[in-house]
Design a protein around this nucleic acid. Structure first.
Length: 232
DNA sequence: AACTTATCCAACCGCCGCTAC
DNA sequence: AGTAGCGGCGGTTGGATAAGT
C-alpha cells in the first residue's frame, strides 16, 4: 500500500472517537483518539473506509454510466461525482476512473476524433463555462451575495450538495439559494439557452417554492446532460 | 509451479482557499 | 496586510492480489 496500513485497533479507536466527538476538528482527532496518525490520515480513513453506509464491491452499470456522464460534465471533480453516487467515496470513483474508464474512453475518443465535440468541464479556474453551444463567461460573485467571497462560493455551493437518501436527490443549502440569486442578478441565468432555464432555478430566484430549501439538482444536471448531448 | 503483467485500492503528498489572529 | 493553521481536494504511489503465459 501507499503507506502504513491501519490496524483493526486503530480503526476501532478512530471510530470510537468520531462517535464520541463527531466529525470535524480533525486536528484534534489524533490526540483525542490516542492515535499516532496525522489529521489527514484520520480524516481519510474515516471518509473512505470507516464511515457508515459505504458501499463496497464493484460498480454497477448505472453507476459507471453516471460517472462517465458526470466526468464529462465536471471533469476530475471526484468529490462532486461521488456525491451523486450514494455510498461511494471520491477515492473509489477516482480509482475506478484511473484503472478502467480513462483508458477505455481515451481509446474510444481516439476513434471518434473526427467528431470533435469536446465539451469543456466546469472547473474553478477556467474562465468560462460551456453549456451546449453557448459559452458563458465565468464571473465571480459579488460579496453581498454570500457569506464568503470570490468564485470559491460557486464551487463550494456545488460541492456542499448533500445527498438525501430518502429523496434520492440532493439538498440545496440556503447559501446555494444565494448563488442562484446572484447568477440571476448578473444575468447569467438569462444568458442560458431558453430551454435550459430550469424552472427550479427560476422558482428559487423568484422565491416561489423555495420554502423547503430543497431543490432538484439532479434534474438540472440531467438538463445539462441533454444540452451536451450525453443522453443520446 | 514459477514468473510476468494487469488491476485494485488504501494511503500519502502537495496544493488551495478560508478563517482567525 | 501578512501569516499560520485548518479542512478539503485531486494526483500519485506502491503493496496486495488476480489473471495470464
Amino acid at each position: 500500500m501507499g503507506g502504513v496500513a491501519w490496524t483493526e485497533e486503530e480503526d476501532h479507536m478512530l471510530k470510537k472517537c468520531i462517535e464520541q466527538y463527531g466529525e470535524g476538528k480533525w486536528h484534534r482527532v489524533p490526540l483525542l483518539a490516542g492515535l499516532n496518525r496525522c489529521r489527514k490520515s484520520c480524516r481519510l480513513r474515516w471518509l473512505n473506509y470507516l464511515r457508515p453506509n459505504i458501499k463496497r464491491g464493484r460498480f454497477g452499470e448505472e453507476e459507471i454510466e453516471m460517472i462517465i456522464k458526470l466526468h464529462k460534465l465536471l471533469g476530475n471533480r471526484w468529490s462532486l461525482i461521488a456525491g451523486r453516487l450514494p455510498g461511494r467515496t471520491a477515492n473509489d470513483v477516482k480509482n475506478y476512473w484511473n484503472c478502467h474508464l480513462s483508458k477505455k474512453l481515451s481509446a474510444l475518443e481516439a476513434k471518434n476524433t473526427q467528431i470533435n465535440r469536446k465539451t469543456e468541464s466546469i472547473r474553478p479556474n477556467e474562465p468560462k463555462i460551456n453549456i451546449g453551444s453557448s459559452s458563458v463567461k465565468r464571473r465571480s460573485l459579488p460579496s453581498e451575495c454570500s457569506t464568503n467571497q470570490g468564485t470559491q462560493q460557486q464551487e463550494s455551493a456545488i460541492s456542499s450538495l448533500t445527498f438525501d437518501p430518502e429523496r434520492e436527490s440532493h439538498i440545496v443549502e440556503p447559501q446555494q439559494e444565494n448563488i442562484y440569486s446572484c447568477l440571476h442578478q448578473q444575468g447569467i441565468i438569462d444568458e442560458l439557452p431558453m430551454d435550459f432555464k430550469y424552472e427550479g432555478v427560476e422558482a428559487m430566484v423568484s422565491g416561489v417554492g423555495s420554502s423547503t430549501n430543497q431543490w432538484d439538482w439532479d434534474d438540472l444536471l440531467l438538463d445539462m446532460d441533454l444540452y451536451n448531448g450525453f443522453s443520446s
